[in-house]
Design a protein around this nucleic acid. Structure first.
Length: 182
DNA sequence: AAGAAGATTCGCT
DNA sequence: GCGAATCTTCTTA
């Protein structure tokens, strides 16, 4: 699922305007992974990870940034895919305003920045991403480049798994160069 | 009841 | 490269 989502388009319909971007970086948090928010079972805040595949799970990281995930296992099984970076497509001026920067490359490079650029917060937690609405997933009109795999960013437990996926060569991917190799 | 860690980002050195 | 900001959840007493 994490690999499948690379190249798909995330669309945000908002009163201020429409924004969208191609997904270029994801991380998998499968069942049994002790670094997953779902590892210790279902709680009110984590319930969206236990919905059937294709629902949004939004959480607040470090009290400062929202992070957006897609549920990825059948109902009652907790798992999700963290969406880490987008290549901006539609609504770039609006994204610039929300992010407070003009640098195209920095608009959605990183999960917190992505959520800010797309105006994603807890209000969108639990939403069905497979139906057109305020936030949904679409197919891309353009072919996807080669997909690379690496270890995940910013975690200490289960750190050795190759569960991060990214489009090779994309300037919109986050992370240190050594993880985004040739 | 209190403390530490966490799927981050920004500003400063 | 390093530390602060900031808040939810989990751990320990």
């Amino acid at each position: 699922m994490a690999r499948f989502l690379i190249g798909k388009v995330l669309v945000r319909d908002h009163a201020d305007g429409c924004t969208s971007g191609r997904i270029v970086e994801t991380e998998a948090y499968p069942p049994g992974d002790s670094s997953s928010h779902a590892f210790r079972g279902e709680t009110p805040a984590r319930r969206s990870m236990f919905l059937r595949p294709g629902h949004g799970y939004v959480y607040l990281a470090y009290g400062a940034c929202y992070c957006f995930n897609v549920s990825s296992e059948p109902a009652r099984i907790g798992a999700g895919i963290l969406i880490r970076a987008l290549e901006p497509l539609e609504g770039v001026p609006l994204m610039r305003r929300r992010r407070g920067t003009d640098k195209l490359r920095d608009l959605a490079r990183g999960p917190g920045r992505l959520a800010a650029a797309m105006a994603i917060d807890r209000d969108l937690d639990g939403i069905d991403l497979c139906a057109k609405g305020p936030l949904w997933l679409a197919a891309s009109a353009h072919p996807t480049g080669a997909v690379g795999a690496s270890t995940r960013i910013g975690i200490s437990r289960e750190a050795h798994h190759l569960r991060r996926f990214y489009e090779r060569g994309s300037p919109y991917v986050s992370g240190p160069r050594r993880l985004n190799g040739a």
